[in-house]
């Protein structure tokens, strides 16, 4: 049996220990996969990724990466476990140049800087000519490239993305998703959280659907795309939102 690369077991977490947002979530990501976590607003998707990254405290359960327990890891140590994380907003250092952003990505593997930079520029050729610009001056799509590029500089085995298509036009979202396929092809496993369910599932291998801090449905991406329950979870939540 193949061991999962990332194993989340029965995790309870939140901003305040007495008010958990996640009520016992379990999830596996296997090497070479793209796994998407879906769910309506407030389902706890971002909370899950932040808890894995050590930004929120986990009050119960465990997180392991490659068999190593990283529950409650100090956020700045995460990159040493070769896990990179791209937050949804403010995910580039706006006042620093694109090159400086990339250099910061390779903080713990400076000897690989040239090699990783080449790899990132091969994936995102546009960044080459933008190198000297402050990242804050770029367009939304370009910023997303810088954010993902910076994360890849650390040569991670697992890349976690919080809503990579948020705030982008459908067309740009498509571009970002197709870039993620290429990231997967260079051997990086991806765990992402998305609102844009259909587009995200199309590039994913498997998916999990969360609602109210619990896992409701899981399965391979194709089956989730056709699963009426998935649509209902969204609709149900949306109609409740509409009433309140």
């Amino acid at each position: 049996m193949v061991e999962p690369m990332l194993a989340v077991r029965d995790v309870e977490a939140g901003y305040n220990p007495s008010l958990p947002i996640l009520h016992g979530i379990s999830l596996d990501v296997f090497e070479g996969e793209i796994v998407t976590v879906l769910g309506p607003n407030g389902a706890g998707k971002s909370t899950l990724i932040k808890a894995i990254a050590g930004l929120l405290s986990i009050s119960r359960g465990s997180v392991t990466i490659g068999g190593r327990d990283i529950t409650g890891v100090e956020t700045h140590q995460l990159i040493r476990e070769r896990v990179a994380y791209v937050p949804q907003t403010e995910n580039v250092f706006a006042k620093l140049s694109v090159e400086e952003n990339l250099a910061l990505g390779a903080l713990h593997n400076p000897d690989q800087f040239a090699e990783q930079r080449r790899r990132v520029l091969d994936l995102f050729p546009d960044l080459e000519r933008l190198g000297h610009l402050a990242a804050g001056k770029l367009s939304g799509g370009q910023r997303q490239m810088v954010a993902v590029g910076r994360a890849l500089m650390a040569d991670p085995t697992l890349l976690m993305l919080d809503e990579p298509s948020a705030g982008l036009s459908p067309k740009l979202a498509q571009v970002v998703f197709s870039q993620l396929i290429r990231v997967k092809q260079v051997g990086v496993t991806i765990l992402m959280v998305e609102q844009n369910a259909r587009a995200a599932l199309k590039i994913s291998d498997r998916g999990y659907v969360l609602a109210e801090g619990q896992e409701k449905v899981q399965g391979d991406a194709r089956s989730l795309l056709d699963n009426p329950e998935v649509g209902e979870l969204y609709l149900g939540a949306n109609s409740r939102l509409a009433r309140s």
Partner: peptide, 20 residues
């Protein structure tokens, strides 16, 4: 660079592996 990064965005700096 790390100092400028922390000054701009401490959370992203930590995510990036900077020891604040």
């Amino acid at each position: 660079r790390q100092m400028r990064a922390v000054s701009e965005n401490p959370t992203l700096a930590r995510i990036n592996g900077i020891d604040v």
